[in-house]
Simulated scan of single mutants.
Amino acid sequence: MSDSNTTDFTNPSTFILLGIPGLEAAHVWISIPFCTIYIIAMLGNFTILLIVKMESSLHVPMYYFLCMLAVADLVLSTSTLPKMLSIFWFNSREIDFSACLTQMYLIHCVSVMESGIFVAMALDRYVAICDPLRHSTILTSPVVAKMGLAIVLRGGMLVLPYPFLVRRWPYCRTNIIPHTYCEHMAIANLACADIRVSSYYGLFLAFFLSSLDVFFIALSYTQILRAIFSIPTKDTRLKTFGTCGSHLCVILGSYIPALFSFLTHRFGHNVPLHFHILKANMYLLVPPMLNPIIYGVRTKQIRDRLLRLFIIKGPKVFS
Rank of each mutant, 00 (worst) to 15 (best):
L309H: 09
I129E: 00
N11D: 15
H27K: 10
T10L: 15
N189E: 12
I217W: 00
I187E: 00
T47R: 10
R173G: 11
F310C: 11
T14Y: 14
N270A: 14
P292T: 06
V52F: 02
F15Q: 10
H108I: 03
A258D: 14
R154M: 01
G156L: 13
G44N: 09
I37R: 02
S57Q: 06
F241C: 04
R168V: 14
F97S: 04
L309F: 04
R266P: 05
S4P: 08
L190F: 15
D235T: 11
K239Q: 09
T140I: 05
A218R: 11
S230D: 09
M62I: 10
Q301R: 11
T236F: 11
S141Q: 09
Y181S: 13
Y126Q: 04
S2W: 13
S210L: 08
L203T: 10
V52E: 01
H27M: 10
L123W: 02
Y105T: 04
I256M: 04
E183C: 10
V28K: 11
L165F: 09
C100Q: 04
T140H: 04
G22K: 05
S198M: 13
C67S: 01
V112C: 06
T243V: 02
Y162Q: 11
S211T: 11
F208H: 07
I187H: 02
C172F: 08
L149Q: 11
I48K: 01
L238N: 06
D235V: 12
R154L: 01
D131N: 08
F318C: 12
H274R: 09
P315T: 08
Y295Q: 14
T240N: 07
T222K: 11
A188S: 12
P142H: 09
V152R: 06
